[in-house]
């Protein structure tokens, strides 16, 4: 475990350093350069790096909590529609604020009202989608959870929220549609405001600490309801805390970068392969892996953008790499470690 934690930490730091040192230079046309940046460029890259690390860690942690909640290794905030719910809530928020103020909001955080920005609607959206998913996924007779039904409910919620977002997008002014389009695919920006990063970092730290504190309870919650009850775990309380933490983590990631798929699915699997399913170890490793992977994915997105001379959403990179990787892992795994 210690070796794994040290190795993953080193990998994360190297990924961060690589990300800081790589980027386009505009001195002689747009070319990719390698070297430690200074001044404004360093500031912009640091912001983007922090955003990617917070979003990656949040998604990974959220994935672990949701997989535990559903006792299903296929659960993640994207599949279950939590990301979709949060994104839709933000879209509605932008739309309503835009209608009211006639203002131009190119990116979600420009619609900062009440000093809370859009993190509150994102949380409500994620929690609303999770509540729908749990309600639809319950067996009607006994009221117990049916994981397969829940995943199907999540897929349908994702589809509906996706359709509604495209619908709302069509009502927005043309200059705004392109930005929203990027946001819908998951986009990490170097102009993410500092307060949003601070809210994200604090939320992540709180949820991470909370998760670690209840790690042994989460281990027992992986068993059936009757076993968990007989071993001394209140499933009602555990589910509620798990539900709130995973919704908050999804809200953080969506508020910063929009819906990003596969990170919440892949990172728990990689972590289980490294340290097994015990949450005392898993919850230490998984957020670090999530941060590493998203920092690398964002680096790839920036490199691609330099080559293509056009911004590339990081969600496209995670889907293109994460999807096939997940299929490979699925085929080569006997049990879900």
């Amino acid at each position: 475990m210690r070796y794994a934690a040290v190795l993953v930490s080193i990998a994360m730091l190297l990924a961060m350093l690589l990300s800081l040192c790589t980027g386009p230079s505009f001195d002689h046309g747009v070319v990719l350069t390698l070297g430690f940046p200074t001044g404004q460029i360093l500031h912009l890259r640091l912001v983007r790096l922090a955003a990617a690390a917070i979003v990656g860690a949040s998604l990974s942690l959220s994935g672990i909590l949701l997989q535990n909640l559903l006792r299903n290794p296929l659960a993640d905030p994207y599949v279950l529609g939590l990301s979709g719910g949060a994104s839709l809530a933000i879209m509605v928020w932008i739309f309503l604020i835009g209608l009211e103020s006639q203002a131009v909001h190119l990116l979600p955080w420009e619609s900062d009202v009440l000093g809370m920005g859009h993190t509150a609607p994102a949380f409500l959206g994620a929690a609303g989608a999770a509540a729908c998913c749990f309600w639809l996924g319950r067996r009607t007779r006994t009221g117990s959870m049916d994981p397969v039904r829940m995943i199907l409910a999540g897929v349908i919620i994702s589809t509906i929220t996706g359709a509604l977002m495209i619908l709302i997008n069509s009502f927005l002014p043309a200059y705004q549609q392109n930005h929203v389009y990027f946001y819908l695919f998951g986009y990490i920006s170097e102009i993410t405001p500092a307060w949003l990063l601070l809210v994200g970092a604090l939320g992540l730290a709180g949820a991470w600490g909370g998760g670690l504190f209840m790690a042994r309870t989460l281990n027992i919650a992986s068993l059936s309801d009757i076993e968990a009850a007989s071993l001394g775990v209140s499933m009602q309380k555990t589910r509620l805390i798990n539900f709130l933490l995973s919704s908050a983590l999804t809200a953080i990631s969506v508020a910063i970068a929009g819906p990003i798929g596969f990170v919440g699915l892949i990172c728990p699997h990689i972590s289980r392969r490294l340290v097994g399913p015990d949450h005392r170890r898993l919850l230490v490793i998984a957020p670090l892996i999530g941060a590493t992977l998203l920092v690398l994915a964002d680096l790839l997105a920036r490199i691609s953008a330099t080559w293509l001379n056009h911004p590339v959403p990081v969600g496209v990179i995670t889907a293109l790499i994460g999807g096939p990787l997940f299929l490979y892992m699925m085929r080569n795994t006997t049990g879900w470690r």
């Binding site: 006792r71 299903n72 290794p73 281990n219 992986s222 068993l223 059936s224 009757i226 076993e227 007989s230 071993l231 289980r272 097994g276 399913p277 015990d278 049990g335 879900w336 470690r337």
Partner: peptide
């Protein structure tokens, strides 16, 4: 009170 269930359901590979 402890319980030995009819079948233990564990989705993850605990030892």
């Amino acid at each position: 009170i402890s319980l030995v269930p009819q079948r233990s359901l564990c989705s993850f590979d605990f030892t």
